[in-house]
């Protein structure tokens, strides 16, 4: 592992080189009651496998989107990738450095390159701090600019970069609307000069007209600063607009991964097809559709074999018993028995 990391670093940081590599990522949460209660009530251990063996490669300058419904594990992956939550097993390499294997200065140096934008702009800014201090905090924490005046100037610069007034530095978060707060959060994320930003549902708390502003801003910044995004969302239309590559999660497993265009024009996994069919869309007004039956099973006790088998219209006998293998179809990776043993690109003749 270390050898590989060392050789990875030797590769010059060119475009399209992998920036983030996630291998065999697992995360298990222990939901059991306390030991004493377990003994007294005779109940066993309860574990939830939130992330079940996820592999991802995010290339420099691209936007990798993770899509999934509740319980799919997308936020858990985000937290493990930025270093907020340790994985149960598996590795996350950024720029060839194992983020969970490093300590001290090297780890700090790497943390500076990773930032995150959160879902709720009302909870992500400390209400007691002025905007200027909020944006300046990462600069201070990483010791990027020692001089207080230069730091203030940099804060003003960052605020203009995200479309706010440098004078806003003196205000408190409650004086701003949701969209403006999200801009402040973006300015804070940019303050440590990161290369990689994880956007966890960055617009799902915003109104549509403001959502467009924030999405456009994120795309602008990506072009200007050469950023790489991991973009997490449950909104497929937003993902289609933002992503270059998309991973679809279902109960902790990556069931399909493909370049954005291919995924939306030619979805392969039955779950992806179902999701795309289910999204209410303004382009589909008046269309009668047959909604897919069933709900997401309890992630504590997922169905054996392929997790999607109880809802799948194409379910086969072995889907209920064996976990499907990863199949390569065109440029997509699909976790489905339908594609086993050869590229059956359109298995059910649509």
């Amino acid at each position: 592992m270390n050898n590989q990391a060392a050789s990875m670093q030797a590769v010059p940081a060119e475009a399209n080189a992998p920036l983030v590599e996630v291998r065999e990522l697992h995360r298990v949460f222990d939901l059991s009651k306390r030991w004493l209660n377990r003994v007294l009530e005779g109940s066993g251990k309860v574990v939830l496998t939130a992330v079940d063996g996820v592999d991802m490669t995010i290339r420099r300058g691209e936007t990798y989107a993770l899509v999934g419904e509740s319980g799919s594990g997308k936020s858990t992956i985000a937290k493990m990738v930025v270093g907020l939550l340790p994985p149960t097993s598996g590795t996350v390499h950024i720029n060839g450095v194992d983020i969970w294997g490093e300590r001290g200065a090297r780890q700090r140096q790497m943390r500076r390159k990773i930032q995150m934008i959160f879902q709720d702009p009302f909870a992500s800014l400390n209400p007691r701090w002025r905007v200027g201090s909020i944006v300046a905090e990462p600069i201070k924490a990483f010791g990027l600019i020692a001089d207080a005046h230069d730091r203030q100037a940099r804060v003003g610069e960052l605020l203009s970069l995200v479309g706010l007034d440098p004078l806003d530095a003196g205000k408190f978060p409650h004086e701003f609307s949701g969209g403006q707060r999200q801009r402040i959060a973006i300015a804070r994320a940019l303050a440590s000069e990161p290369e990689f930003i994880v956007c966890d549902e960055p617009t799902s708390a915003l109104d549509v007209s403001v959502q467009a502003q924030v999405l456009n801003l994120l795309r602008d910044l990506q072009e200007r600063l050469g950023l790489t995004y991991l973009f997490i969302s449950h909104n497929l239309a937003v993902v289609r607009h933002m992503a270059t590559r998309v991973g679809v999660l279902y109960l902790g497993r990556l069931v399909e991964e493909a370049p954005s265009r291919e995924l939306f024009s030619e979805p392969k996994h039955p779950y992806t097809r179902m999701l795309l069919d289910a999204v209410p869309d303004i382009g589909m007004e008046g269309v009668e559709r047959e909604p897919i039956a069933g709900e997401i099973p309890n992630p504590v006790n997922p169905p054996p074999g392929c997790h999607f088998n109880p809802r799948c219209p194409h379910v086969m006998e072995h889907c209920r018993t064996t976990v499907p293998p990863l199949c390569e179809v065109n440029q997509a990776n699909v976790l489905c028995h339908l594609y086993e043993g050869g590229a059956l690109a359109r298995p059910y003749g649509i």
Binding site: S177, G178, L215, N216, N235, R240, S260, G283
Partner: peptide, 21 residues
């Protein structure tokens, strides 16, 4: 125009209304 859609061209920028309500 500001709503991202599953039809539409994903490479085009979304129309945006300046400011907020």
């Amino acid at each position: 125009a500001a709503i991202p859609s599953l039809s539409g061209n994903p490479d085009e920028k979304l129309e945006q209304i300046p400011g907020s309500m």
